[in-house]
Design a protein around this nucleic acid. Structure first.
Length: 240
DNA sequence: AACCTTAGCAACCGCAAACGG
DNA sequence: CCCGTTTGCGGTTGCTAAGGT
């Protein structure tokens, strides 16, 4: 879907694999900030907001996919009873899960369960001093491993990221060598309005259109960064 | 097989907080 | 302190696949 905003076309709706790969690459380059800049310079024709959401909820390398474990389920129930609909806060206690995921999960699973429990408790006697919540708290096991312990190959998303990086000849290790903070400062200083023209996908096929998009985006970005006093050696290393 | 309902999920929207000049 | 911009959050919508009739 495409909406027209002020003459520029802004894409909406589901993300394509190509867009995902492009976003992953640019986030790796510039980090998880300045979403508007990333949106503009990548030529994705998405809003910064949309890019951020896509990254946070779907493309982020630390994401755990698949069903909630019973431990996670209990933790969500416990924390929701404590904090209410503070999804982002709850999500911080569940490594690899996003607020959106938890919110959706609650809506479909937990709310129903909570209601069932509530009704069953209200119908039963209140003689027991041990509430469901307190029993949860006392029996909670430690959270299963942190993000670093996740098996990244378990998710299609992760393999997609890896393949995207490989495809683009990108060495993730390179990034750590660059002073991104400095780059950002420089960008902020001299950020000219980068008029990102709509990415042109040719009519013959998506593959060539994709290559064109990447090439054009990088060219655009390279030109921008060249204005920022970066030595050519660093610049070469920066691009995928 | 066709239609309807429901569950699950991705994505959008509006608002408010945080940030920077 | 003010104001514009960016980011984060929570609510909501819309699409799709699965299951039921």
């Amino acid at each position: 879907m495409v909406t027209v905003m002020g003459g520029e076309e802004t894409r909406k709706g589901p993300w394509t694999e190509q867009e995902d790969s492009q976003l992953v690459c640019f986030v790796r380059l510039f980090g998880e900030r300045r979403w508007d800049f990333i949106a503009r310079v990548s030529g994705l024709n998405r809003t910064g907001k949309s890019c951020r959401l896509r990254w946070v909820n779907y493309l982020h390398p630390g994401l755990k996919r698949g069903r909630m474990t019973p431990q996670e389920e209990r933790l969500i129930l416990e924390l929701h009873s404590k904090w209410g609909n503070r999804w982002s806060r709850i999500a911080r206690r569940l490594p690899g899960r996003t607020d959106n995921e938890i919110k959706n999960y609650w809506r479909t699973h937990m709310r129903k369960k909570a209601q069932e429990r509530k009704s069953s408790y209200s119908s039963s006697s209140s003689s027991s001093s041990l509430t469901y919540e307190s029993s949860l708290t006392s029996n909670l096991p430690p959270m299963l491993g942190g993000i670093e312990n996740l098996n990244h190959n378990q998710t299609g998303t992760l393999s997609c990221i890896v393949s995207a990086a490989k495809e683009m000849n990108h060495d993730p290790g390179v990034m750590h060598a660059y002073p991104m903070e400095q780059i950002w400062k420089d960008i902020e200083k001299s950020e000219a309005k980068v008029a990102a023209p709509p990415c042109q996908v040719n009519q013959t096929g998506a593959a060539s259109g994709r290559d064109y998009c990447f090439a054009e985006s990088f060219l655009r970005m390279e030109n921008e960064l060249k204005k920022l006093f970066l030595p050519p050696v660093q610049l070469e290393g920066l691009f995928c």
